[in-house]
């Protein structure tokens, strides 16, 4: 644990913690809106900002934040325009950003070596000034994604309904992509611009496999993101690999591990899943004696079948419903 006494590792760990908690937070909305690759595009745009900063000798983080936000606004306006050409325009924006960044960095002799610190993350390059900016931006992201959860969730699941509720849907949509742009730059130092999208999307998918409900899986995804980011940074100290690569491999390993778990959970949950039968015929049945020491009900753990005016329960080859002092057996 000697790395904890190293100043650069302390900074890297704090940055990883913040990247790990913010990326899945905004990622939850992006996945719900089926825009999983948005983060990747925003990362490409931010590379132009990094190139510009390298070319002009300024601090990369603020320039990258500004570039990514401008890119996000353009992307959302293109998307809202609904034109078929918007798709191509976005592709041009993404690759234009990447190319501009590489070109600008190359022109001032910084080459891809320096740039790769930003593309794949780097333990050594985080300054204290960076950390303050990252901390402030992360606070903004967390306050908005948690505080506006009902509104953002509504906009992501059913835009029309949200409009009828009187919500300013366009503004909220814009907010989501701007927050995503900020998240990309927050994570740039640890995960890297080319891989940040994985940290936004994969923990959300893993959490969705394990828990039901938006809110619960939102917080689980944040926890998974933190574990992966922090473990990735520690691992990269020992393996001398770019932290981004390790973080992404860990998140994907988590996702793969969640698959058999999800299958098991699904089978277990089916116990209280309800089937609804709606034949209109009178229900044929015979009467049987009641159980000794067990009464069926919503929480009895047996599979329920809503059947017209009553609910049957299935177990041990029976399908029956309580009726007065006996059971009706189907």
């Amino acid at each position: 644990m000697e790395f904890l006494s190293l100043a650069f590792m302390q900074r890297a760990l704090i940055a990883a913690l913040l990247a790990g908690v913010t990326s899945p937070a905004i990622g939850s909305y992006i996945v719900q809106r089926r825009l999983s690759l948005l983060g990747d595009g925003l990362g490409h745009v931010a590379i132009a900002g990094v190139g510009l900063a390298l070319a002009t000798g300024t601090a990369p983080l603020p320039v990258a934040v500004a570039t990514a936000i401008i890119g996000a606004v353009i992307i959302e306006l293109l998307r809202q325009s609904g034109k078929a050409s918007a798709d191509v325009a976005m592709a041009i924006l993404f690759y234009g950003g990447l190319a501009t960044g590489v070109l600008l960095a190359g022109l001032v002799g910084q080459g891809t070596g320096t740039l790769s610190n930003f593309l794949f993350g780097s333990l050594l390059s985080i300054t204290e000034a960076d950390l303050w900016i990252i901390f402030t931006l992360a606070a903004v992201i967390l306050i908005t994604t948690i505080g506006l959860m009902p509104q953002l969730f509504a906009v992501c699941t059913d835009e029309d309904f949200a409009k009828v509720m009187g919500l300013p849907v366009r503004a909220y949509n814009l907010l989501i992509v701007v927050l995503a742009a900020i998240t990309v730059t927050v994570s740039m130092r640890t995960v890297g611009l080319l891989m940040v999208s994985a940290l936004m999307v994969v923990p959300v998918a893993t959490a969705g496999n394990l828990l039901t409900g938006f809110r619960r899986s939102f917080f689980l995804a944040m926890a998974l993101g933190v574990v992966a980011a922090v473990a990735g940074v520690i691992g990269s100290y020992y393996f001398n690999a770019p932290p981004g690569s390790l973080i992404v491999v860990i998140t994907i390993a988590g996702f793969v591990l969640s698959l058999p778990l999800a299958a098991g959970l699904k089978r277990w949950r089916q116990h209280d899943q309800v089937i609804e039968i709606t034949d209109r015929a009178p229900f044929p049945h015979e009467t049987t004696r009641p159980h000794e020491g067990h009464s069926h009900g919503p929480d009895c753990g047996h599979r329920a079948v809503i059947h017209g005016d009553h609910t049957d329960y299935i177990h041990d080859g029976h399908r029956h419903a309580p009726h007065g002092d006996h059971y009706d057996e189907h």
Binding site: V31, Q32, R33, R34, G147, L148, P150, Q151, F153, A154, T157, D158, D160, F161, A162, V164, M165, G166, L167, G208, T212, G213, F214, R215, S217
Partner: peptide, 29 residues
């Protein structure tokens, strides 16, 4: 407003969370 069921894109939410969005016309940010 009850839109056509096919137009609704809900991936990860409980019944209660979906119904709760119906309160947003009165709820402040």
């Amino acid at each position: 407003y009850v839109p056509q069921r096919g137009a609704v894109n809900i991936k990860q939410a409980t019944v209660k969370e979906v119904v709760a969005t119906g309160r947003l016309s009165t709820r402040r940010p």
